[in-house]
């Protein structure tokens, strides 16, 4: 896929918006590529981490927010740790994911990942803690193609008593609900 950059993108406030939301100033990046060089998941990405920063620098909102890269970032923070200009790249991925979800443009190819996050947070919202069994069930239900994946692990976990069917609800469930309500 080729990208055409016009003055429309170049003049956009995307980088400014990112900075306002996260405090991350992408102008500081001089595109040395060290983030990409050390990224353990880069080989799976559609764009390299340094390219994602470049998108933000040049106002290429669509390319950044619809990329698979932002979802494939494992948040290992190797990039930010080694960045010579101290740009928080991993944290930038967080804010781009948040924006992609808000705008409903998250890449459908990484639906497994977004669904996992959804199922995880639903469990927290409901019980205050994770119920691994019910979180897994929701995920598998919503992503039926993954149903057979790791099929052998579940029963082994059960056998070792490591997967409980009864969720543990915390006393302050209401307080958790309130947090979720406030920060929808």
């Amino acid at each position: 896929m080729k990208i055409k950059i016009t003055t429309k993108e170049l003049k956009s406030d995307f980088a400014k918006e990112v900075k306002e939301r996260s405090g991350i100033d992408v102008k500081k990046c001089y595109q040395c590529g060290k983030c990409t060089a050390g990224c353990p998941v880069a080989y799976e990405m559609d764009y390299m981490p340094n390219q994602i920063i470049r998108f933000v620098q040049l106002g290429l909102r669509r390319e950044a927010l619809t990329s698979r890269t932002i979802w494939l970032c494992a948040s290992c923070i190797t990039c930010s740790t080694r960045c010579p200009k101290e740009v928080k790249i991993a944290e930038l991925m967080d804010v781009l994911r948040e924006m992609a979800l808000e705008e409903g443009v998250a890449n459908p190819m990484e639906k497994n990942i977004t669904t996992f996050h959804e199922a995880f947070l639903n469990s927290v919202k409901k019980h205050g803690r994770i119920s691994e069994f019910w979180m897994l069930s929701e995920y598998k239900r919503k992503r039926p193609k993954t149903a057979l994946q790791d099929i052998e692990i579940g029963p082994q976990l059960m056998l070792k008593g490591k997967l409980s069917l009864t969720p543990h609800d915390i006393k302050g469930k209401k307080s958790i609900k309130r947090i979720f309500e406030k920060f929808k």
Partner: peptide, 18 residues
């Protein structure tokens, strides 16, 4: 007493304030 889940990567990857 009554601790809750920290939200782990799913929360920080999708909703910083949460």
């Amino acid at each position: 007493d009554d601790w809750n889940c920290c939200g782990a990567s799913s929360a920080h990857a999708t909703n910083h304030k949460l």
